[in-house]
């Protein structure tokens, strides 16, 4: 019992550490898209580890915690994708360090093709 509690506490600590990295990433990254990268990735594993840690402390909750983890895994990438897509649609610029933007090229090409048709 005691060992499980300690393992759970350590997992929760590790999870919060990853969430801390996500927070630092949000502050340090240069533009929206890179911030989304730092935010989603670190926070996904962070919340999974935190939840697993709680599950080890209370083994009777493990199945429900499994459900929570499933929801986090499904919803996290979807929300980050939608944020990124909306940002790109709204024309929020990428940082100066960006090398290439094929999506913008593609959209511009479609736009000119449409204009030519009209």
């Amino acid at each position: 019992m005691e060992a499980l509690q300690i393992a759970g506490a350590l997992l929760t600590l590790l999870g919060s550490l990853f969430i801390l990295f996500a927070a630092i990433g949000l502050l340090r990254m240069p533009d929206v898209y890179n911030r989304i990268q730092a935010g989603t990735k670190a926070s996904t594993l962070g919340s999974i580890l935190t939840l697993l840690g709680i599950g080890l402390c209370h083994p009777e909750w493990l199945l429900k915690i499994g459900l929570l983890i499933l929801f986090v895994i499904i919803s996290n990438p979807v929300s980050s994708h939608v944020l990124g897509r909306a940002a790109h649609f709204a024309g929020i610029p990428l940082s100066k360090r960006t090398h290439i933007d094929t999506l913008k090229e593609y959209r511009d090409k479609e736009l000119t093709a449409k204009e030519e048709q009209q």
């Binding site: 730092a38 090398h99 913008k104």
Partner: peptide, 18 residues
């Protein structure tokens, strides 16, 4: 990502590819 965020020089080369 943790490594990139924590290293002082922020080693990123971002871009959107197809």
């Amino acid at each position: 990502i943790a490594f990139r965020v924590l290293s002082p020089s922020l080693p990123i080369n971002p871009g959107i590819i197809t």
